[in-house]
Design a protein around this nucleic acid. Structure first.
Lengths: 203, 203, 203, 203
DNA sequence: CATGAATGAGCTTTCATTCAT
DNA sequence: AATGAATGAAAGCTCATTCAT
């Protein structure tokens, strides 16, 4: 029984991992199910024992990996109390996660937002949670009087995420890495922290 | 030749405009050439008199429309000398352009970056030029001593663009518009301006 | 325009005729669309310009051919007034039609009634009309006092048709033709005529 | 061996019974082996311990059930000597058997004759025996001088069976039962008896 | 004997592209 | 230049069958 579930999750895992590689290389629409099967070392039909269809592979891939990313990020922010420090850490952790798993990052950035299926019909709860980590930090900062009250967390969370995301895209898509992750994370969080601080806290 | 291309430009235009609608509605891969033809009121085969293939429609669409966007942005920044004001204006103009042409914005955001064809092999000159408008402003600001010297324009341009872009995605993909364009543009440019100002200029 | 519709109907016809051959040989479910295409000398995709899907080929085939059969039968009965002679003629015409178009007969007998799609969901209007030719003859016979009043036309039409149909199956499916069509038709109609006559008319 | 096959006959039986239900509901080609397995409460693979393949299930089903039908019919005719009474009884017994086991009847009528496998290559001995019950009765009648000598038993058996069969199809496929079995059996056998009687015997 | 996860051949259907008119 | 009927390659998916456990 234990062995059974292990065997199953093994195939499931192998298929997801193969899909990450294949989708990252070709894009979702240019990837063939048979190519994923070959990369996962299973038969074509086996894919359909673990996933409903090709779309479902992408959705599951996203849900599972995004879930891990969420956990890692929450873990990375543990124990930090200062909102500004939290933003710095978020930026660094985000770019590090992207660097660690470039193929996955490429898929999340490029494929997931491609299809109306995934950004319109598909609710994408996990992504919202990820964004809301940022807005929560900002609200904490506002509650502590560190960040200005006129800042709209809904705008700032998107701006901050977008800034990091565009930087990531540059990393993911270009072969030459001109800027170090640490520096980029530092600069980007710096813009937003300085941009959001109250006069009082700047002293 | 000139006359010829001008005479044909009607069909060419109609196809591009139809493609914008169709790609925005279904995404590039879920769009059929025949649907574009129908929307453009031409025969399927006619498409291939003006474009090499389906990919070429997307590339041409991007090049032509991006060229217009570039011109509009340059025009919008004309006559402004203060770098901070320029960034404010850039933000407002960018979000306004997105709002004006949501279908096009959706394609540029979602479809263009989908395919390795377009972001890896395809050099995407126009997009670089667009980004470089931002870095040029930042460099001007640094030259004038308004923006800090330690800011890396290559990072800042991406961060600033990414912030606006993620905000745009929210507008394009969600039906409810929670934040006004003016306010969002103001806040986002504000973050970056405040975040980049030298101590001296803050006084 | 004329040429156009002629060209279309030509392909449509060729596909139907090819389908008759292929379905008769292999049965509907064992027939491949590509085999029909090859037999019709068109490309696989061409089939789908004229028919919605494989099922649709069978339905159209049935509707069109059954319509012809109906016309031929009505024509064969024209000018006959005596109900008994009409039944005789029906039997002969039915078996002759089967012999003329054995492949078609096999499909109608075997394939059409196979699928719940065709005998349950599909209303099968033409087949009812065909059966009702028989019940109409019987009712005429009853009105004229030739056939007994206690005969239920709804039962008799099915019995008469079933008798002919089972005889046809024998012809269609067996290679050796033991009985002549004329004799079989004569005997079968004879059973029913004798079986339905009133005492008076037997004198 | 005997004990063995008796012990297994449970699973064998369950599979056949499940197949009757599943084939009747979906038709042979639209039925999945796994669905039969589920309905029989056995594993997919178990099916292949008792049957060679999917076709074999249908063949065995037919042979076994048809064998029972043959026995029942022979039993129903036991003790009747008068050929006319025998035909009456045959008709009633046939329609009663159909009503008792509608699912089975539907399969025999619709599925068995569908495939060239079963009506061409497959000799279908039992079905011939069933038909020959009828021709034997007719020959007895002819020997006794009750039925006319010019009647061809090979034609009449098919006509009689076909009449009953078409009536059965009506019952099996339509939800509303307009005619009672007794009346239909009475009328159909009546047609044939009256249609086959010698002049002498009619007095 | 029994299982059911795994297989992979083979099908229907789509649609970008062509080319005779 | 314009058409749109025809093409046929290509891919997602199913399911009968097998075999290691």
């Amino acid at each position: 029984m234990k062995a059974d579930s292990k065997k199953n999750s093994d195939k499931h895992r192998r298929i997801i991992e193969a899909a990450v590689k294949v989708f990252a290389k070709n894009g979702f629409f240019n990837s063939k199910v048979s190519e994923i099967a070959r990369a996962a070392n299973v038969a074509d039909g086996t894919i359909y024992l673990y996933f409903q269809n090709k779309d479902d592979i992408l959705i599951c891939l996203f849900e599972e990996e995004m879930s891990k990313v969420l956990n890692k990020m929450r873990h990375a922010l543990e124990g930090i109390t200062d909102p500004a420090r939290k933003l710095e850490r978020f930026a660094l952790a985000h770019l590090s996660l992207v660097e660690e798993a470039q193929e996955l990052a490429e898929i999340i950035q490029v494929e997931i937002r491609q299809s109306s299926k995934f950004m319109k019909e598909y609710s994408n709860q996990q992504f919202h949670e990820y964004l809301n980590i940022i807005s929560t930090i900002i609200k904490e900062g506002q509650a502590q009087g560190v960040f200005r009250q006129d800042i709209m967390p809904g705008v700032a969370k998107r701006a901050f995420f977008g800034a990091l995301d565009e930087m990531s895209r540059y990393w993911v898509l270009s072969s030459v890495k001109k800027y170090s992750i640490t520096m980029a994370a530092q600069q980007i969080s710096d813009f937003f922290i300085k941009g959001m601080l109250t006069q009082k806290s700047e002293d």
